[in-house]
Write a protein that binds this DNA or RNA. Structure first.
Length: 864
DNA sequence: ATACATACC
DNA sequence: TACTGGTATGTAT
């Protein structure tokens, strides 16, 4: 019965502003009094008004939902109930209680670090952040209602003595590294969620631990250095042991179990403690080591899956731990009384919507599943269902590659165009720098604006090629900004925040779809009752996931198969990959002799990017582009599949499904499997009319990523256009282009990107060719003409990649007949004010005059 | 593909 | 005086 109950009423707007006391450390506060102060401090502010507005939107959403609910018939509900029960049964069957998952969370992390380093703070309510915003507060301050995400000036009203300490991220990062070293001892694959939080899979550690001698489980106080590690004293000895976080946690649920001397004294004179073999002991040991090493405390939750572990770590916070036994009964009991809001993923809004349906605890959630399945999206109610059953991930997902990178800044009102522009540039500079650090390039640039009324807008543009430099990013961002200004004019944009984000990274992104499809194939061989908590949640148990596999993944292969025929005109619909691939083959043939080194500066740049965690080898990304001689054997590179000990391993089935003949191959030996595929491929090529994989497919570079946890991962590396080009460009290509420091960029106002995605390609009659580079529909079905167009496009991209600064004034003729490109065109521009594709911009409407002549067009300089 | 909303720390 | 910044993901169009 949190603030949600009252908030379903008309005065619900309180719920956005009101104190959020639901996360640990704030029990039994005088909420009314606190909320009153918060309201008084906020009322009438622009922020408050905006919150009101958003509250109303949520309320409308709820109203809509209630209306929907009112129209549901008993029969529908019954049907839904049946479905829910089916799915529940399936989920139940897949329940896995065998893993021991731990969630560790440092207590009041930033605040604790600051208190450690500044003893005067220990007795005081304090918070880390600024008058504008607090990152976290210590437990003293929480008693006043002061908490993370609260602006400092309001916190000050709640607690006039509050000391606000500015953030010092370098320090937190340093501590973070220290604790991660300890995490790694218990699970080398642990997943950090932030500087102060991580998920660990203790299963393997516990198994090993059983045979460890006491000495390996003995840890000293303070002066560290135990049998199992060689920690050094890195922190000032100053505070005595008893004083470790005394103020913060004196009455914590389970404080340090033993004081120096109570267990023993080592030869060196320091106290030590021997920890047992149980999970609890192991986790306690880990927390102990953290405290000894950093003088900071952590809390932990132990449970059979991540969702529960997360909740558990909160239970005895601070400086405590809680274990949920691995039995179905314990889990179900635990979940019954769990407020939905405690579950990660259910936030303020979801909570409110659920509350409106009379749902506040997870037991309600279970009871109302049929209803929920009708009112919420599939993903949403599937999540709810899992939560209600106490299910969650039983493996620690690997750290995914990043998908976007951004930077944003809040400032006092900024309305001047010039100032906005230079700010925009600054952001781009910062972003470009960060991009460079990680060697990333992305195709989508997004501008984020928040006006002084706190209204947020995002404007995005996706380029046909990936960018990373300041100029490239800025040229897009500033156009987006200008467009916004134009849209608002004559009113100025009164901004309080601006941000720039870049996404759609090429180095990693474009591989994934195929990669998934391969996994899908491999999994077909196994009886997939799935289990949401099993290895690959995404492919596991829901019809949705299966649908994805069938409709999205498999057809990719079908399309590949269709490639040969489509080139003869029988099957016109080609995927982007096919077309790019066809082009590649053609180029390879043409350039067979002239091909030189193959990897220009651009290629090596891409190579050097690697990936987030350095697990993937990115060199393969262009290997496959040049390998016209690639053996079909490489379809699956003969990397040994590593025997798996964790749940991930179950992805490997007893049999594998051949992507060529679709038969199951009775083997787990990938060499055997490769041989089979080779055989299939050669069979196929001798029987052209069979349902086969075209030989063009053989240069899909699939390989098993054995380094990556225990998942057997086969990826198809899709050749990136840019790389492709780099390796295939010829001297002639380059000579044919001018480098007059003019950048050519595509303007694509009204593109008719006709359906390269449609699965039912076979039925199509009229050929639709879309340039894989500029994405414009080509009206000619003559492949020679089409290729010519693609050539020109390719050249442009190569040029772009070659130097950013270089460019061409080439005017790409669209492939011919009539309507082809109306709206799309190419514009040259000075690099420093490069133009980009845009749509619906008043300054560059999709215009017919552009057709076929572009290069002389210009767009007004931004802000004159 | 784009825009916006929600969520987490 | 003053209500963050970074990332991911879901939903709707």
């Amino acid at each position: 019965m949190e603030n949600g109950a009252a908030s379903t009423k008309a005065e619900g707007f309180l719920s956005r502003m009101a104190l959020n006391d639901n996360k640990a450390g704030m029990e039994g506060l005088d909420r009314d009094k606190i909320n009153k102060i918060i309201m008084e401090s906020s009322k009438g502010s622009r922020f408050y008004e905006n919150e009101l507005k958003r509250e109303q939107q949520v309320n409308q959403r709820i109203e809509k939902m209630m209306l929907q609910k009112a129209q549901i018939t008993d029969q529908q509900l019954k049907k839904a109930q049946a479905q829910v029960e089916r799915m529940t049964a399936e989920l139940e069957r897949s329940r896995d209680l065998s893993r021991v998952i731990v969630h560790v969370d440092m207590d009041a992390f930033y605040a604790a670090v600051e208190m450690r380093d500044c003893p005067e703070l220990k007795d005081k309510p304090m918070a880390v952040g600024s008058m504008s915003m607090l990152s976290t507060s210590n437990y003293h301050a929480r008693k006043y209602g002061v908490r993370a995400a609260m602006p400092g000036f309001i916190a000050k009203k709640l607690c006039p003595n509050l000391v606000i300490v500015p953030t010092n991220f370098d320090k937190y990062r340093a501590v973070c590294n220290e604790i991660r070293e300890i995490f790694a001892d218990y699970d080398p694959h642990f997943q950090p969620m932030s500087l102060d939080e991580a998920y660990l899979d203790f299963t393997d550690h516990l198994q090993q631990r059983q045979s460890w001698p006491d000495s390996s489980r003995t840890h000293r106080f303070r002066a560290s250095s135990t049998a199992t590690d060689e920690e050094q004293i890195e922190l000032p000895q100053e505070p005595e042991m008893k004083d470790l976080s005394p103020v913060l946690f004196e009455d914590s649920p389970s404080s340090s179990p033993c004081l120096p001397g109570s267990e023993g004294v080592s030869a060196a004179g320091g106290a030590f403690e021997v920890f047992g073999k149980s999970v609890e002991e192991a986790v306690r040991e880990m927390r102990f080591r953290i405290e000894q090493k950093t003088m900071l405390t952590a809390s932990a939750g132990i449970a059979p899956n991540t969702m529960l572990a997360k909740v558990c770590s909160d239970k005895n916070k601070p400086n405590g731990q809680y274990r949920l036994p691995s039995t179905r009964e314990a889990v179900m009991d635990f979940v019954q009384n769990l407020p939905v809001r405690k579950v990660s993923g259910i936030g303020k809004v979801s909570e409110k919507m659920l509350n409106a349906l009379g749902i506040s605890s997870c037991s309600h959630l279970g009871q109302q599943m049929a209803l929920l399945s009708m009112l919420f999206s599939e993903t949403a109610w599937h999540h709810f269902l899992q939560v209600s059953l106490g299910l969650g991930s039983t493996y620690i997902p690997r750290h995914e590659e990043r998908k976007s990178m951004s930077t944003e800044r809040t400032f006092r009102e900024l309305s001047e165009a010039e100032e906005q522009l230079s700010l925009c540039r600054e952001l781009c500079e910062d972003l470009a720098q960060d991009m460079k650090k990680e060697g990333l390039k992305g195709k989508t640039v997004t501008l984020k604006l928040k006006n002084v009324n706190f209204e947020v807008k995002t404007r995005a543009l996706t380029l046909p090629y990936a960018v990373a430099t300041v100029d490239e990013i800025f040229s897009v961002a500033k156009d987006l900004l200008k467009t916004e200004r134009d849209n608002e004019s004559p009113q100025p944009l009164r901004l309080r925040l601006m941000g720039v984000r870049i996404s759609a990274f090429v180095t990693s992104d474009d591989k994934k779809p195929l990669q998934k499809s391969i996994i899908g194939f491999l999994q077909t061989g196994k009886t997939d009752s799935g289990g949401s908590q099993g290895t690959h949640q995404k492919f596991a148990c829901f019809p949705l996931a299966q649908k994805c596999q069938r409709q999205d993944e498999v057809p990719r292969w079908s399309k590949q198969r269709g490639l040969e025929r489509s080139q003869t005109g029988e099957e016109p619909q080609q995927s982007f990959f096919q077309r790019a691939h066809a082009k590649r083959l053609q180029l390879q043939a043409v350039n067979a002799n002239t091909e030189e080194e193959g990897h220009g500066e651009n290629a090596s740049e891409i190579t050097s990017t690697g990936t987030q965690n350095g697990v993937e080898s990115s060199t393969k990304a262009h290997d496959n582009c040049t390998a016209s001689d690639r053996s079909e054997n490489d379809f699956v590179s003969p990397v040994e599949a590593r025997a798996s000990t964790s749940g991930c391993g179950s992805a490997v089935s007893e049999r594998l499904t051949c992507p060529v003949c679709f038969r199951q191959v009775e083997t787990t030996d990938l060499n055997d499997f490769n041989r089979h595929i080779d055989q299939c491929l050669s069979d196929a090529s001798s029987k052209p009319n069979q349902y086969t994989v075209s030989d063009t497919e053989s240069d899909l570079d699939l390989e098993i990523d054995h380094k990556e946890c225990e998942v057997m991962e086969i990826r198809a590396v899709q050749c990136e256009v840019e790389e492709d080009l780099t390796s295939n460009r010829t001297q002639e290509d380059q000579r044919s282009l001018k480098s007059d420091s003019i950048q050519t960029v595509l303007i694509n106002g009204d593109n008719k990107t006709v359906t390269s995605q449609q699965p039912q390609s076979c039925n199509d009659k009229s050929p639709v060719l879309i340039c894989p580079i500029c994405q414009l529909t080509q009206d000619s079905d003559d492949l020679i003409i089409f290729n010519h167009h693609v050539d020109l496009c390719l050249n442009r991209v190569v040029l772009h990649e070659l130097g950013g600064q270089t460019s061409s004034s080439i005017n790409l003729p669209s492939v011919t007949n009539s309507k082809a490109i109306d709206g799309g065109r190419f514009l040259p521009a000075q690099v420093s004010k490069g133009k980009t594709k845009r749509r619906d911009s008043p300054s560059s409407p999709p215009s017919k005059k552009a057709k076929g002549l572009g290069p002389r067009n210009t767009i007004d300089k931004f802000f004159r």
